[in-house]
Write a protein that binds this DNA or RNA. Structure first.
Lengths: 257, 257
DNA sequence: ACTTGACTCTTACCTTACGTCATACCATAG
DNA sequence: CTATGGTATGACGTAAGGTAAGAGTCAAGT
């Protein structure tokens, strides 16, 4: 006889556990060709082949019972079994596809979780101050404008909003480090361009009614009129306010001409 | 409190079994809000909501343990869990796709299964007779011709071969039912045309070296010379042999002119 | 011959997420 | 008061092995 394998050898050859072979023996799916005097299992070539068949059908997710039936029966059942099993697998696969979509949606929903209240939007700001800020903004730009901006921000994916805030902080810091330079110099104007883009994002991302450059220029006045815009870490900075104003006006003018 | 459901009510509402609720209670996944004096479980609105959450994650194929962990923890773990689970599902789905392809291949392989021996090709015929038949055929047409035909048949998809055999039987029966008609009549010639096509298929399906009409005409002689060709269900039928001969010759001549 | 380590045997309990009894208690309508 | 039906608890079964326990076996080194 060709090949004479112990349980372990056969197991390693076929990539299964010894326990599995024990089980297959017990349920009659794969019996050793002989037993030694000490009841050790001995397998030969044909058992290896059968085991490979078994593993093939196991790959196809057949229950062991069916595998036994298939292997011990002529092929007629097999074709039907395969067709039936194909349908099952198709259903399962489609199910997975649905699940994946569901997960994607869920993840997006979580990531894009829109904030549920204005506190979160004005976070870090005391509540009364946030209210005052809102009122003032409405008085300045009109209620519709403020509401549009707020809604845009509220509908913005949370992660994006965090990114925007981080950008804003970074831009402000860079600009402050350039406060001794010419406001019209290229390096300052570069940061101002980022600032404009950032503000524009805050304004309402994909809205065709873009932030007009004139509006941005008008915003520059606020940097002088309202120290809140140039308050960094608690202390007002009038020189920086003046610097920002000049830089922003120059930027707007260069775009307008 | 809103809603006060018994096990059965809650079960029906959520579409699970009572046993499931018992289980969830025991493993601490979903405990009733209260127990009556008789230890009856009583659920309220928040349990219903939690149960719906549970079912959602169950849809996503999470084990109950994980679901408990997810529901009892803040969302941070959730995103990671979802991402991880998504990968698992993707792998599983791809696995199914591979399996489906494998099954398709297997089915095709089985359908196209080439027969492994000549016994199967000459099945139904006693072994010695099949041998004699082969020898005679080789003597008559040459070994190369017989081997070519045999190989063509052996490589033919098994189901096609069955179809061919069925066709052959059908054609023969129809021709026998027409044996009292004029061999050159249209209805007979129609069946003879089918017969020719069938023989040609036997000859070698997609081979450009087609069965020549002269060869088919030569085959007609066999219907007289060899009663095997017109033996139906054990009894020879010389009249039918003559009929076939005339019909085949006429068919071939009409093609040749 | 003896020990050691690797291998093997059988038996049996554990796993998941319930389904399916079995037994006994509880509630309520007629 | 009883019939009916909901409920509770406990136990067993499922698929395909994993893991462990306790004991026997084999081959090699000493």
């Amino acid at each position: 006889m060709k090949g004479n394998y112990s349980v372990k050898q056969l197991a390693k050859l076929a990539g299964v556990s010894v326990r599995t072979l024990h089980l297959y023996d017990k349920i009659g799916l794969l019996k050793p060709s002989v037993r030694t005097d000490a009841r050790y299992r001995r397998y030969e070539e044909k058992e290896l082949l059968r085991l490979q068949q078994i593993l093939f059908y196991k790959l196809l997710d057949f229950p062991l019972k069916d595998i036994g039936a298939i292997l011990d029966n002529p092929e007629f059942e097999l074709l039907k079994a395969l067709e039936g099993h194909k349908q099952l697998l198709t259903i399962k696969r489609d199910h997975f596809t649905v699940l994946l979509n569901t997960i994607d949606k869920t993840v997006n929903h979580l990531k894009n979780k829109t904030m549920s209240n204005y506190q979160e939007l004005y976070e870090g700001m005391p509540k009364e101050q946030a209210e005052a800020y809102r009122s003032e903004a409405i008085a300045k730009w009109g209620e519709d404008v403020v509401l549009r901006s707020e809604n845009a921000l509220l509908e913005m994916p949370k992660l994006n909003l965090e990114q925007l805030k981080a950008d804003q902080k970074d831009i402000t810091q860079k600009l402050m480090s350039l406060a001794d330079k010419d406001p019209e110099s290229n390096e300052v104007q570069l940061q101002i361009a980022r600032h404009y883009a950032n503000i524009r994002s805050f304004w309402g991302v994909s809205d065709p009614t873009d932030l007009k450059i004139e509006t941005y220029k008008g915003l520059a006045d606020l940097y002088i009129a309202d120290e809140r815009y140039t308050t960094v870490e608690g202390k007002a900075n009038p020189e920086f306010a003046s610097f920002m104003h000049k830089a922003m006006v120059h930027f707007a003018d260069s775009k307008l001409k």
